[in-house]
């Protein structure tokens, strides 16, 4: 069965890095349905593509990740969101979870950390 993934980050490099990890055999059947560079675009793409999973940056132009998580959680309550952010304080992680995120990965991340976090998100 295919799972639908939306990748949200204002860095093209990070979006592509996460996308490339989807070829790992431990992450079978993941279809990347969109790449968004800001929060506003992410909400639009989530509405149109209805992803099962989202990786979500927090510091972004136009609409920050926290606001974006709240909007998407309201629109698509079944979608599971993994925050991928450089913001390393505990309060930010707790606030993101309270808004509707399901996990948190700190940048910089190793490939293995990201894969394990996605596996946990999908389990």
């Amino acid at each position: 069965m295919t799972s639908r993934l939306l990748i949200v980050d204002d860095s093209n490099i990070i979006r592509n890095h996460i996308a490339r990890l989807m070829v790992d055999p431990r992450l079978p059947g993941i279809e990347i349905v969109g790449l968004a560079g800001d929060g506003r675009k992410a909400v639009e793409m989530a509405r149109s593509t209805r992803p099962d999973y989202i990786t979500m940056d927090l510091t972004m132009p136009h609409m920050n990740g926290e606001t974006c998580i709240g909007e998407i959680a309201g629109l698509l309550p079944e979608t599971r969101i993994l925050v991928v952010s450089a913001l390393s304080d505990k309060a930010t992680a707790l606030r993101a979870i309270a808004r509707g995120a399901h996990g948190f990965v700190h940048k910089p991340f190793s490939d293995e950390t990201m894969i394990q976090s996605l596996l946990e998100l999908m389990s």
């Binding site: 860095s11 093209n12 490099i13 990070i14 510091t59 952010s85 450089a86 913001l87 390393s88 304080d89 309060a91 930010t92 700190h106 940048k107 910089p108």
Partner: peptide
């Protein structure tokens, strides 16, 4: 374009990690 992107992203990661010490 990618060099500029990664330079900005590294600055972002190094600043963001400092929030462990300085807080939000």
């Amino acid at each position: 374009e990618n060099f500029l992107d990664v330079a900005g992203e590294i600055a972002n990661m190094l600043s963001g990690r400092a929030r462990r010490h300085f807080g939000e």
